[in-house]
Design a protein around this nucleic acid. Structure first.
Lengths: 201, 201, 201, 201
DNA sequence: CATGAATGAGAATTCATTCAT
DNA sequence: TATGAATGAATTCTCATTCAT
């Protein structure tokens, strides 16, 4: 319906770079602390310490700002997944799965408020970015890993959505997140994948 | 911080009853088709075919309208769960679980757009705490069922959240929901509960 | 510009009489405690315990309600003045003046909040009721008294306005009304009339 | 309960300065001609020839606009009093008093309608307490003058209120203000202060 | 007569976006 | 390029008044 807004131009100069970073940072802070309802471009510009005009130099509209934040979140997720896979290389699948879940939880725990809004308040009139490059890369990684484990690679997408849903559902919504979240989620995902049960120590 | 908004007054007469129903119906339709961003009281009243003043006779503010829709969804969920449990009474736990998952999926499939908004765009700042009466009733049912199955009743809340997350994450967010959704979700939940694996036929 | 609204009809029956009284009482209460800003016909009807429709049976519009309250205040003032004059009959002019001032102050002290609003918030688009029957009667009384004292009767109107201004200005506006208000106002009015100064005891 | 509303920001540039002035002027005009009931921000903005948004850039809300007008009135009053005292320096007290009364009357005659509303229709629920800086300054001036005349300085506040009441009551409310207003009010105030009577020439 | 549901014009205020400087 | 004043469409909500029951 609407196309996903892109940043207006890639900033080349130092000052611009700094401005963009400041704007994103301000946007993240407002979104994290007060939610989408309190998120307006004037406030973002003010908190970023730039004029409202400058904000519109780098972002064609409000949506583009949120989209940029989304992209940043995707990149972080990808990096975290890669790191977790690299660190757990050679271990049994279930342990690798646990490592990935732990990494995702860590990532989300760090910026709880921001992620809550980012994941739950993507405005409905913009189609959900189902097919952004990061998601594709993410799927690729997971598919490769599944294949390496001798599991059905076609389940990568579903596994990712499942993991995402569980992390957000259990971590973001619960006032008091239940202890052993990693274990719970890993169990569920392992159950879905048909991995052999592991006795809880 | 914010209190949960309540309907302003219970309609007694026939005409009023109809007005309230029309308003809720209109609200649901708009929310479902265009999302929260396009949801405004004037449009709701217009679509409902009542004056804007009438809307405010029955709902003290915009939030109360969404809250009423939410409450309705909660009631439907509870009823669906009860029905599923009653219908599968006496069957093995895994089948009962599958029945409940199927019921939840059915329910959500029926009003996809509305539920997407209700579950994901409910503005974060006045999100009702997880301890509303419907959630409590839901937990109670599930806890009783777990106990009857000889499983740990304390996991009811987490199980519910998990089911919720999976249903929404897989059904609502995916452009094209993967086939065999009941099976996928049931597998994951069974894995979490430690139910014995069931060979897929 | 606009004509001063009159009560729609004089109630003859008992029930009606009671309704009108209840409405006026409710109106006075709301005006007194919350001011004109919070004064709306629906609230008045509710507090009076009658339907909003009934209110409009007896008062053609909101203004008429306030006008009726005004008239009531005028009647009370007239009665108080008469009583003060009767009680101080035969005493020296200054004492009579003091008696009238004291009566006016008493009257206003009894319903401070209501009078504040009544006197200060008469809506600007309705001409101030400069020539209502009560004011005329009041002037007549004062003129007669002035003549009896051998003073210039033509000053009655101005004297009344002056007294009114002083009572309202000093009693209604001052957070803590200065002690000896009667004395202060009497002194001022006596000064205006040229009455011989009276040593304060 | 309510805090006194302040202007939102001080305009720096030329255009802004002009806008603020235009807004205040428009507000004064509407208030003067049609009263508080007809005073709404949209109309003010339109008459001022600025967008409604601009109005809200400089005044956080409707009240702040009226407050600004009030403040302006206070400043003018203070200036007029000072001028009158300076011009009548060295004359006998009664003449100085007459000069001050004349100054106040002049001031109010110039913008009759506006002052009527400002003084009498300022909504009661957020009436600023009598202890605003301008009132204090006014009291100070009068107290100093009383002391210089050998009169009781403690009566400054009451004298001010009295003068205020009389000016407003006689000038603003009366359809046709009585002739010789200066004389009448001066007589009354002198009577209150115990100044020796002055034979009317 | 009494009622109160229904109405809708109107009021205050916000905020994404533009454009002159 | 950066700025921020200006804008006005859009939104939420109120309340005087009517009229069918």
């Amino acid at each position: 319906m609407h196309d996903i807004p892109q940043p207006r131009k890639a900033p080349r100069q130092n000052r611009s770079c700094h401005a963009v970073a400041a704007i994103l940072e301000a946007a993240a802070r407002i979104l994290a602390s007060d939610g989408y309802a309190a998120f307006n471009t004037n406030r973002v510009a003010e908190l970023a310490g730039v004029g409202i005009g400058s904000l519109y130099q780098y972002f064609p509209n409000k949506q583009a700002l949120v989209a940029a934040l989304h992209r940043r979140h995707g990149e972080e997720t990808l990096a975290a997944l890669d790191a977790a896979l690299a660190a757990s290389d050679g271990r049994p699948p279930r342990e690798q799965l646990a490592a990935m879940v732990a990494a995702a939880l860590d990532l989300h725990r760090r910026e709880l408020g921001l992620h809550r809004v980012l994941e739950r308040e993507w405005p409905a009139f913009d189609e959900p970015p189902a097919s952004n490059p990061q998601d594709a890369a993410l799927s690729q990684r997971v598919a490769a890993w599944l294949q390496a484990c001798g599991l059905e690679a076609g389940r990568a997408e579903v596994l990712l959505r499942m993991a995402d849903s569980l992390v957000h559902g259990l971590l973001l919504d619960a006032g008091t997140p239940p202890a052993g979240l990693e274990q719970l989620i890993t169990d569920a995902l392992a159950g879905f994948l048909g991995l052999p049960a592991q006795p809880h120590p």
